[in-house]
Simulated scan of single mutants.
Amino acid sequence: MTEVLNEAIADYEQKLFWQTVNEQVERTQREDPAGWADYLAEREAIMGQPSDRIAPEWEGLIKFPEERNEANKR
C-alpha cells in the first residue's frame, strides 16, 4: 500500500513540475517576447534547427514550443 501511495505522489509531483514549467514558458512568451526570442536564438545557435536534432522517423510527431507558438498566435 505504501508503495502505491509513493508512486501516486511521485506521479503527482512530476505532473505538477511540468505544469509549472509549461506555465512559466507560456508566461515568458507572453510577457517577455524579446527575452523569448533571445532564448530561441541562443538555443538554435547551440543545438541547431529543430529538424537538425530530431530523427526523421519522429519528424512531425514532436511539436517544439516555438512551433506551437507559431500555430497558436493570439
Rank of each mutant, 00 (worst) to 15 (best):
Y12C: 06
L40F: 03
F17M: 13
Q29L: 07
E26L: 12
D11Y: 07
A34E: 14
E7T: 12
Q29N: 04
I9C: 02
Q29Y: 02
L16S: 11
G35I: 05
Q29G: 02
E13R: 15
N22K: 15
N22A: 15
I9D: 01
L40M: 10
Y12P: 00
T28D: 10
E42P: 00
Q19C: 09
E26P: 01
W36E: 04
D11L: 12
Q14W: 09
Q24A: 15
Q14F: 09
R27S: 13
W36K: 00
R30K: 15
W18Y: 09
F17H: 12
E42Y: 03
G35D: 05
E7F: 11
L40D: 00
R30Q: 13
E26S: 14
Q19L: 14
R30Y: 08
L16Q: 15
E42I: 07
Q24I: 14
R30G: 05
A41S: 07
G35M: 11
A34C: 02
L40E: 03
W36N: 01
E7Q: 13
E42A: 10
G35E: 09
A34M: 06
L40P: 00
Q24K: 15
W18C: 04
A8H: 04
L40A: 01
A8E: 05
Q29I: 07
A34F: 02
P33E: 07
E31C: 08
E13N: 08
A37V: 01
R43H: 09
W18T: 10
R30V: 03
A34H: 02
Y39R: 07
Y39G: 02
E31H: 04
Q29W: 09
T20S: 11
D32R: 06
T20D: 11
R30H: 06
F17R: 14
G35Y: 04
I9S: 01
N22I: 15
Q24G: 05
E26V: 04
Y12R: 12
I9T: 05
E26F: 08
A41M: 06
V21H: 06
T20Y: 10
Y12G: 04
W36S: 01
T20L: 12
E13M: 09
R43N: 10
T28R: 14
E26T: 13
